[in-house]
């Protein structure tokens, strides 16, 4: 197992370096939680103002890679303050189809084409995350309250969802 892990660690190290060197992910910075553990990344997401609900927010998340990466997907867990979002569990775990293994039938409504595949990279994951923050998916709610409020706001009933999101953004900036 040690040999396999070291190959995976090498792959992750190269992918981390590529992200840190490249400019393909504006507003995102990645680093290791601990220098001796290549399998746990810390990701800072500085969302730009185009993002309707979370623009201006600074959110922090952990990317946890399994030993079997890239055969199995990593997990992404937002740290406090967790964004109030239909697809993020209150404990911070992100629910996004690209991080679901293809064999898993628990999410039957998802097209297999959106699921994890070993050719995915941290970069493609983070791009999907940004897109999910821009347009939440209310069909598979991880946070039922957020999903209900989001749907109500989409139907023009009130602006409660946006208010909750802005509060989150202010918290993320340490203002509340």
């Amino acid at each position: 197992m040690a040999g396999r892990s070291s190959a995976t660690a090498g792959l992750l190290g190269r992918q981390l370096k590529a992200i840190q060197k490249g400019n393909d992910l504006p507003g995102i910075s990645c680093g290791l939680v601990r220098d001796d553990n290549m399998f746990e990344w810390e990701v800072m997401l500085m969302l730009d103002d185009d993002c309707k609900y979370y623009g201006g927010g600074n959110f922090c998340a952990l990317l946890k890679f399994p030993d079997t990466y890239p055969m199995s997907p990593p997990k992404m867990i937002f740290q406090n303050p967790v964004p109030f979002h239909p697809n993020i569990y209150p404990d911070g775990t992100l629910c996004i189809s690209i991080l679901h293994p293809p064999g898993d039938d628990q999410y039957g409504y998802e097209a297999a084409g959106e699921r994890w595949s070993p050719v995915q990279t941290p970069e493609t994951i983070l791009l999907s995350v940004i897109s999910l923050l821009n347009s939440p998916n209310d069909e598979s709610p991880a946070n039922v309250e957020a999903a209900t409020m989001f749907r109500a706001e989409k139907e023009g009933k009130n602006k409660d969802f946006k208010k909750r999101c802005r509060k989150c953004v202010r918290e993320s900036l340490g203002e509340d």
Partner: peptide, 12 residues
């Protein structure tokens, strides 16, 4: 990859 999914990893 085949042990986990019987689809092509690139285009399924």
């Amino acid at each position: 990859a085949h042990a986990i999914s019987h689809d092509c990893p690139t285009d399924r």
